[in-house]
Design a protein around this nucleic acid. Structure first.
Length: 271
DNA sequence: AAGTGGACCTGCTAGC
DNA sequence: TGCTAGCAGGTCCACT
């Protein structure tokens, strides 16, 4: 599910309301990707700080540490007052004096991990290999071109890998490559400097547009207010196999790269 | 070092 | 109607 726009939309929807709250209790459901890494009772009484985002991870500071959260493929966070009984897919509740933050995640690829600080393991280890933030001014065509040099993987997979630039998942990598007019199968190291300029701009523009639209809701994404996103209605290629390209009319193709679907227009996107 | 494939887990849909 | 195969927004890890 959640790529950068969904994670950031989620962050914005609860960060201000939970900041300054005091933790009353923690409830765990079924296991997530990794164990919490602390006694849940040890979080009681801690003060919640300002939630931040790095890539697709959220960092929720608590006194003397914090929680690193990831939504995996199917996770979403909800924040609300009142005690709603947990459902079968509710696997983490942070109950505070201002309301409860709840992670719902049917597939359980998500995670909530305690760390004594964001720059200490395990948080630092998980965040350590991440590439630049797409809206970092340092993320330029020049940076992208340099980072791709010598890499033989397809450009689509290089974007998804997250070690050069974070935030673009399967939907937005496809959309950015469409906007930049680049065939997703192009070997990463063969994308010219000029096209890297276009691609870096396209990644930023697509992610910004998706952010404006509250992300994409394919099936179950909701922000912490329960609001769905609407970017999926603006997708040019993602999920549109065999439908006519809005620019040239050629049928959109679906191929598989690294066991993930890639959608592209074989006419508008070239090697 | 870079590339590849498998693993994690559940739910939904299309097709027979 | 019911079963099965295939697919889904991520990313870590082991292996070549």
């Amino acid at each position: 599910m959640p790529e950068l726009p969904e994670v950031e939309t989620t962050r914005r929807s609860f960060a201000e309301r939970i900041e300054g709250a005091t933790v009353r209790a923690v409830r765990l459901g079924k296991p997530l990707r990794w164990p919490l890494g602390c006694d849940p009772a040890s979080l009681q009484g801690r003060r919640v700080g300002r939630a931040t985002r790095r890539g697709k991870y959220l960092w929720l500071p608590l006194d003397a540490g914090g929680l690193l959260l990831h939504l995996g493929m199917s996770g979403s966070l909800a924040f609300g007052e009142g005690a709603v009984p947990p459902g079968a897919h509710d696997h983490f509740d942070l109950v505070t004096d201002r309301g409860m933050l709840r992670l719902t995640d049917p597939r359980r690829f998500g995670a909530v991990v305690w760390s004594s600080a964001i720059d200490q393991p395990p948080a630092a280890t998980l965040l350590g290999g991440l590439g630049l933030e797409p809206f970092d001014p340092a993320f330029t065509g020049e940076h992208l071109h340099r980072a791709l040099r010598g890499r033989r993987v397809a450009i689509k997979q290089a974007l998804l890998a997250g070690d050069i630039v974070v935030g673009a998942g399967n939907i937005y990598a496809c959309e950015a490559l469409f906007e930049a007019g680049i065939d997703p199968r192009t070997p990463a190291g063969r994308v010219s400097r000029a096209r890297c300029d276009r691609l870096a701009a396209a990644v930023r523009r697509i992610l910004a547009q998706a952010l404006d639209l509250g992300g994409s809701t394919l099936r179950d994404f909701r922000d912490a207010h329960g609001m769905a996103g609407s970017f999926q209605q603006h997708a040019a290629v993602y999920g549109r196999e065999a439908q006519p390209c809005a620019v040239c009319g050629a049928p959109v193709r679906r191929i598989v790269q690294g066991q993930r679907s890639t959608f592209f227009c074989p006419s508008c996107q070239r090697r």
